[in-house]
Design a protein around this nucleic acid. Structure first.
Ligand code: FES
Ligand code: FES
Lengths: 159, 159
DNA sequence: TATTTACAGGACTAACTTAGTCCGATATAT
DNA sequence: ATATATCGGACTAAGTTAGTCCTGTAAATA
């Protein structure tokens, strides 16, 4: 079903909350506050925020009055960055990750086009930022947000 | 990691073989022949072909000299059809499948944009056919195959 | 008609992945 | 000192996936 894990989904939701909080200059929120805001279990929220901090999407401050705040402006955090932080590279299948990952390589007819498809999907996710996710696209008021698709060049046409 | 299951991957590969076989008027191939061609275990191939036949992407003929052949011309089989046949609707997360699937709905800020993203990815996969996958796009000789991305309209701009 | 071939349908298992919990250590503010 | 919160990682239960196997049925052939 071509899915993203629940934890990653939570991560998106959590970062969206941080982006919204930042607008109201309440940048620092700890894991407990976020758990309450999202109705998610505290240990789960804690685990996800830790990972996001490791990956630089959040800044952490320890100790009393500690918590997390966004590590970058919402406009500079791409949806693809969030997904990659929580579940690694965006690859639909083993063989799109690089040579030697797929046992079918020897007899496979469709590796190259599939790599192109994978790239198109990844680029779609690269073109959406956290700012757009929470409705603060700089273009939002003037025209519809365009998530432009990337043209896929068929490698078989290249010669 | 945003993945497609191995079985679905195999299904793509198998259908690509059928598309290639059809060009050489060897339309009917049984599961054993396909297992040999792809180096996949016979039971696995058999299981996948059964499902694809159920879903109408392959036609089956039982008995001696039986086997499977494409149920539609390669140009009319979309990559999204194949994925949906083998793993159900293309939904990245529970909440993109419809209301009532996601426990976060009550507090969620990002459901609408996420549905748009999901749609863009699905449409990307709808625009690629099996014919293009095996290199027989009608446009392939004249210009690069363009997998056009779908513009995502931000629902927040709609009013 | 008997036999062989091949799909149909579905039960079943082992391996793997994911979701979620828990704990001891460390850093910070008061 | 003490309370607060993150850090880092181990751990478990539940769910999913990949792969196998078996019995039944349809078709071709001799
Ligand atoms: S190389 Fe992996 S499916 Fe083709
Ligand atoms: S994440 Fe499911 S409704 Fe928002």
């Amino acid at each position: 079903m071509l899915r993203i894990s629940k934890l990653t989904d939570y991560g998106l939701v959590l970062l969206a909350h941080y982006a919204a909080a930042e607008e109201q200059s309440e940048a620092v929120k700890n894991a407990r506050e976020m758990a309450e805001a999202t109705l998610l279990p505290y240990p789960v929220v804690s685990k996800i925020l830790k990972t996001l901090a490791q990956e630089g999407l959040l800044l952490s401050r320890r100790g009393s009055k500690g918590g997390y705040s966004l590590g970058l402006p919402p406009k500079e955090i791409r949806v693809s960055d969030i997904i990659e932080a929580l579940e690694g590279p965006i690859t639909l299948m083993a063989c799109t990750a690089g040579p030697g990952h797929c046992e079918q390589e020897a007899t496979c007819q469709i590796r190259d086009p599939w790599i192109q498809i994978n790239g198109a999907i990844r680029e779609t996710l690269e073109r959406i930022t956290l700012a757009e996710l929470v409705g603060n696209s700089p273009t939002a008021s003037s025209r519809p947000t365009q998530i432009k698709q990337v043209a896929i060049e068929n490698p078989r046409d290249a010669h």
